[in-house]
Amino acid sequence: MRFRFAVFIIAFGINVKLLSAQNFSTISVNFKPMFGHSVLQLNDSIYLLNSRDSIQFTTLKFYISGIAFWNNSTTVWIESNSFHLLDATDSNTLKLAFKVPADMIYSEIKFKLGIDSLTNVSGAMGGDLDPTKGMYWTWQGGYVNFKLEGKSNLCQSRKHEFQFHLGGYAHPYNILQSISLLTSNRQNVNIELDLKTFISNVDLANKPSVMSPNKEALILSNQLGKLFIVK
């Protein structure tokens, strides 16, 4: 008898959940990589760093994961299996959409820049985490969280190229960044990431490449984590 009652309660619960979950609305979160005040363009656009030095970007790819909406210090919605590879060459990847309950009210968006350590040690993954996406290191285990490549006259490297492949999931170089952004309750959120500020703090002349989990990767990631702003 007790068992039947339990089934009834569970069935009732599912029913209630189904009924109430029928009203959804979509929240769009658009990531906009910027260079100063203009939207970043890869390849052809040449940007000035100052009156003398210029820079071009060829690759910008990064992972956004663990997206959650919060309201006054409480979680109101968490995306399951939340891993998104954003690639500046494909504008569709920069626009994320979340189907949330229609009556949801939020005041804060939280997400991670990069891939958490558990996922990093869980073997081969699919979707945006598939190693064919070119964001998994091959000479050692782990994902590249953030990849930025290009060239600048400042770089004293071959072809004046720079490569920043920032990754690392293990102590002392766990470079995953947790980002919290306050925002008003709205359906369209634009999040900007200014790469001019980022690259201006990088020593392009002497350190044009960071491609291992190390101290530099940690410092650069910490800086990146502070550059996301809601517009």
């Binding site: 190693p131 091959t138 285990g141 782990g142």
Partner: peptide
């Protein structure tokens, strides 16, 4: 011990 999981081990020789 550079590789942390059997599934991703093959990536190393494939890419080297």
């Amino acid at each position: 011990g550079a590789i942390n999981h059997l599934d991703v081990q093959a990536l190393a020789p494939i890419s080297h």
